[in-house]
Structures are given as C-alpha cells and as structure tokens.
Write a protein that binds this DNA or RNA. Structure first.
Lengths: 137, 137
DNA sequence: GTCGTCACTTGAATGATTCCAGAAAACATG
DNA sequence: CATGTTTTCTGGAATCATTCAAGTGACGAC
C-alpha cells in the first residue's frame, strides 16, 4: 500500500507534509521531531515546526506511527507498529534500536497485583551503551 | 539505619534539606519534584526549588532514590531501590503505583539480539487507568 | 467547480528542568 | 573551639521540547 493510500485508509487527508514525514521515517527509524523536520525540509523547505508536530500527532493517533519517549530524551517516532517490539536506549548518546521480544507472548508482562488499575499495555525499555559510546569509554 | 547514617554511609553530607526530602518520600512514594518541594516546605519554609532538584539528583546518584520518568509526566521519585520492581502509570491522571515482577527472574527481560548494545538494565512500565479515572469515565 | 472542514503558518507561551554567581553551611584538622 | 576548604543552598535568569491561539490556505465530498 502506498503512503497515499495508507493515509486515505485511516481517514486522513493526503498532504505534502504528511507524505514527507512518512518518507523521512522510511528507512530512518527513531528520529526525533527536530530530525524529522530537518529531513522534511530537504524536500519541502517551507514546512513549519508546528506542522511537523501536528503531523506526528495525527499519524500517531491514527496508529501509523509509534511514539517512543525515553526518559531524559526528546520523543522519537517510528513506522513499525503493531508488532509489540521493544527498544534499547543508549545511556551515552540516546541512540535507540529495536529489540524483538524473545518469548512469543511475553510472560512477565502480565502484572500480578495491579492495585485496581486496568492495565492496557506494557512497555519495555532496555538501557545500556551503544557500540560507539562503549569505545568512547 | 537512620537517614543521617544513610547519608554519611554514602559519603554525602548531612543537611536539613536532604533529611527533609528523605522524610517527604517516606510513606509517600512517587512524588514529583514539585510535590517534594511542597512537603519539604511544611517543615523548612525557606527551601529553594533548586535545592530540591540538587538533593534529588544527589540522592539518585548515590542510589538512595530511584527516579521514574513516565512519558508525558514530570519525573517522580521513590525510596524503594534495588529490588527491580516496576510501575503502573495511569493514562488519565498520571498516578503511579508499584508492580512486583510476576516471575522470579523475568524471562522476557533478556533481549535476544542487542545490536551490539551493552545492556545494563530493563525497565517495564504498565499503562492503564487507575480506579478513580475508571469511574470518571 | 463550490464549499465546508481540516491542515498549515506565524508568533508567542508554557512548564519542567538546568545554568550561573555568590552566600552560607558542614566536615576535617590543628 | 577556631579555621579553612569543600560542598551545598539561594535567587534569578535561561533552556529546550512541546503546545496554544488566530488567521490563511488547501483537500475532497457533493
């Protein structure tokens, strides 16, 4: 399915900024809003900061994008949705990479006592050092 | 061990603001910086905002406090450290509660492929609705 | 094509957190 | 207990990602 069809399918209007954001995240996952803006402006120089934030919100709300918010770092976005994968975040530079869940259906992701909370989702974040930051010491 | 001994034990100086912060978090886990400030000022009215941030950083760095940063909410702090428990966060009001890991040693918390990252820790966050927000609809 | 709705632009505001310089207090020593 | 050094605390301003507000412009149903 083309990005155009994807947007129509979710009931979203097809606009140049939206296509540009999707294109920027194609092959470059885990970009933050500023990086997305930079990439979008290479093809659409006039796009405003808020347009990018609006688009990212709209696409996230429509389930086309997934938003990752590692503690202490700006939010990042990726196109890979719906497969319940997780992330490693580098303590040094904030780089993010994907981690697939080892076990098919995560057994420890069903909490024991939920204190009356209605739990909808579980999110796993691994923290460590990326290869580059390991070398840098 | 008293809080005074605890601070000395970690090589930290014993000051009134530090004791007050520890006291504020005793029995009131998951407070954010502003809430800690409010509680501290009931006993030490003159304490500054930055003093509280400095203290929270110092105690977190010394391993006395644990910092929780749920996406979209200010950071929260708790005294319970070193037992690898996790948290439920309310999508409505941001309330946080503790969740003990179901399985003794979490099986899915060892990532399969780590892309060269040196993984140090795994963090699990459950998202849902607290009892109060469930009733509010 | 026309029109209503939704998206985008410009500009300013917010809120948690941090930076800076100077004053004050805590620990180690004589 | 007096002194000096180091660390902490105060007060004010600054930062950064993100959001709000109001007006202009473009998509797409009819």
């Amino acid at each position: 399915m083309t990005d155009t069809d994807l947007l129509r399918d979710r009931g979203l209007r097809v606009t140049a900024p939206r296509l540009a954001v999707l294109d920027a995240l194609e092959g470059h996952a885990h970009l933050d809003a500023d990086e997305v803006l930079g990439r979008v402006r290479t093809t659409l120089p006039g796009v405003s900061v808020q347009a990018v934030y609006d688009v990212l919100h709209a696409l996230t709300g429509a389930g086309i994008l997934r938003r990752i918010e590692p503690a202490g770092h700006p939010a990042r976005y990726e196109r890979r949705v719906g497969d319940n994968h997780h992330h490693v975040v580098c303590r040094g530079c904030g780089a993010v990479d994907d981690v697939d869940c080892v076990v098919g259906h995560a057994p420890c992701l069903v909490p024991s006592s939920t204190s009356g909370f209605a739990v909808e989702a579980a999110e796993v974040t691994f923290w460590g050092l990326c290869p580059a930051c390991r070398q840098a010491g």
